[in-house]
Design a protein around this nucleic acid. Structure first.
Lengths: 204, 204
DNA sequence: AGTTTCAGCGTACATTTGTACGCACAACTG
DNA sequence: CAGTTGTGCGTACAAATGTACGCTGAAACT
């Protein structure tokens, strides 16, 4: 038999997968019921409590997991991008790829980031904040590298993140054959911001 | 006695107000139940059906109403802005004011715009699309007026709308004393985009 | 070997949900 | 004025929900 830890971890994962699956098929998180998720995961309703105190607990775990994989991914992108390809393009493609492979979670995180004060909102907000901070830091480093001063790097990063996620979501509702064109549009928008930031940097 | 039409319209409005009130206090739309809204509006649950076929019907009416007032508002802004004040600043302030006064609906529209294929998403999407299209049209006109060519006006408008609403939502979770600073940041971000668009316009 | 721990189960119950059905009575129509 | 219309009500019911309670059996520990 598998050890208790392994077994428990696996059941917990089943619960998270069940919820993520429902999210991916279009449900919003708070239409999910404890009983329903338990059934999908193949356990009795009351066994749910062995893993999460709440549906809220499950939700937080989902957001947490999504955040971890996302930050890790963007971290990899920076190393990979130093290989020469356009950083902007690689970032966009990588992020969108992740969102396409995690549609349910992506939607949930962004929707919750727009909700009212709640544990979900806090978690989602923290994730976006971290992404923006990391990006700003990188932008400064990159600008110095190229000897081109950037005006308001943090604001540029905020704009970038807003545009990235807004368009990422839009992409999920777009037929595959339009993806390439859509990505091109986003890349142009981001270049626009960078040009603007550079101009405002020189103006100082 | 009031006429039947008036009476019915008033009850319908009570239902919409009840729902909007719950949204404003942080609930998400699909945690609202028909019975609950009926009770808040002061009518029997079964009377709900005299006004809407569904909770979905109510939701659509809410989004519709929010969209109408919003588009009307932005239309006024353009006339008012020709008076000389910065168009960007006036637009931002007006939109944010509207969002602050309609927190529940604003959140709902933006959240639904990120959901999966559904009547709600379609309605919300249509609203944002219209705003972006109108804005692009205005940007072109304004650029011609000033003799400064704009590159990719539609993309600039898309970016602007994304940044406006993202930050508008963020503002709702911000203490009032930080509002002025926050608005300043958004104005700077929008100027950044405009500068970028102008630069890319000249490059052609 | 004997004991403890604990993931998972089944039963049970009070709430809440959407909605079908039919009645009442004020407002409209002719 | 008589007849029709239609908003609103109360009752009723099946389904679903969260969760309290106590049991079981195997893994973990001593």
């Amino acid at each position: 038999m598998r050890s208790r830890q392994q077994q428990k971890a696996q059941t917990r994962q089943k619960l998270m997968d069940a919820a993520a699956g429902e999210l991916a098929s279009g449900r919003s998180f708070d239409t999910l019921s404890l009983r329903e998720i338990a059934k999908l995961a193949g356990i009795a309703p009351t066994s749910f409590y062995r893993h999460f105190h709440d549906m809220e607990g499950l939700g937080l775990a989902l957001i947490e997991a999504c955040g971890e994989s996302l930050l890790e991914l963007m971290h990899e992108v920076r190393e990979q991008a130093s290989g020469g390809r356009s950083l902007i393009r690689v970032s966009v493609e990588t992020l969108f790829d992740h969102m396409l492979n995690n549609q349910g979670l992506s939607r949930m995180v962004l929707q919750e980031s727009m909700s009212r004060e709640s544990p979900f909102r806090d978690a989602a907000e923290r994730l976006l904040e971290t992404m923006s901070r990391d990006l700003a830091e990188f932008l400064v480093w990159d600008a110095e590298q190229r000897g081109v001063p950037l005006g308001h790097p943090r604001l540029a990063a905020d704009s970038t993140v807003a545009i990235l996620f807004t368009n990422g979501i839009a992409l999920l509702n777009t037929p595959v054959e339009d993806h390439a064109r859509h990505i091109e549009a986003v890349v142009t928008q981001l270049r626009m911001i960078m040009r603007g930031a550079e101009v405002m940097g020189q103006a100082v």
